[in-house]
Simulated scan of single mutants.
Amino acid sequence: MARARRPSPQTAAVLIALAEAGAGWSHGYDLCRNLGLRAGTVYPILIRLTERGQVETSWETDPPRGRPARHLYRLSIAGAELARFVAESARAGDGAPAPGAARLAPRTT
């Protein structure tokens, strides 16, 4: 039987950032830059969330000339529900954090 675990602060940050993008697609590089996290942190999170059905992926269909196509990411319906739960949990724990502050807030037990 699998235990439900609270997402790490980094996973929560990725979920919230994708939720803020709405139905739009996001590039992994942009997530890294916007969240101040390294690619070695963000891409494994995106892979795990994709394997769990919480993130959808696609390839860029029309990349700029001279650059290969990149992966695009967005939340699935299940991922949007998880992101909503994570955001509500962050708000409930710290009142009303400044935008972005809840993304990397330490976990509480």
Rank of each mutant, 00 (worst) to 15 (best):
R33D: 03
R5H: 09
R6K: 08
C32N: 14
R3P: 06
G100V: 10
G53L: 02
P63F: 13
R91Q: 15
R84Q: 12
A80V: 02
D94R: 14
P106A: 07
A90H: 05
L37K: 06
L75W: 02
A13M: 03
A96D: 13
F85Y: 11
L18K: 08
R48H: 05
R107C: 01
L72Y: 09
A92Y: 01
E88F: 13
A78Y: 06
L49I: 00
L37R: 09
G36V: 08
A39W: 14
V55I: 11
G53E: 00
F85S: 12
E20T: 11
S89D: 08
Y29K: 09
A105M: 07
S76C: 05
G79A: 05
L35A: 00
P68F: 03
T11W: 06
G100L: 12
Q54L: 04
A98W: 05
D30Q: 11
A96W: 06
L82T: 02
E81M: 15
T11F: 00
R74M: 04
P99Q: 11
G66C: 02
P106N: 04
A69L: 03
Y73L: 03
A2I: 13
P68V: 05
H71E: 11
W59A: 13
T108W: 09
G36R: 13
R107T: 01
F85D: 09
Y43V: 10
A87P: 05
A69K: 12
S26Y: 01
A83Q: 03
T109M: 05
A2Y: 07
A23H: 10
R74W: 02
L31T: 07
I47Y: 02
A17F: 01
Y29F: 03
V14F: 14
S76N: 06
R3S: 11
L15S: 02
A2F: 05
L15T: 08
L31A: 14
R33F: 01
L31I: 12
A19V: 07
A105T: 05
S76K: 01
D94C: 13
I16S: 10
Y43S: 10
H27L: 10
A80D: 05
L37W: 08
R38L: 12
A101D: 10
G28L: 04
W25P: 01
T50H: 07
A39R: 15
A21E: 08
V55P: 02
T11M: 15
A23L: 11
G100C: 14
R67W: 07
V86P: 02
L72Q: 05
G95K: 12
Y43L: 07
R5T: 11
P97F: 10
P64V: 08
I45N: 01
Q10L: 06
H71Q: 15
A96C: 07
S76M: 06
D62H: 14
E51T: 03
R3K: 11
D62P: 02
Y43E: 06
A17V: 01
R5Q: 10
A21H: 07
A102D: 11
G22Y: 07
P64R: 13
P68I: 02
T61L: 10
P97S: 09
S89V: 08
G100H: 09
R91M: 15
A39H: 13
A78C: 07
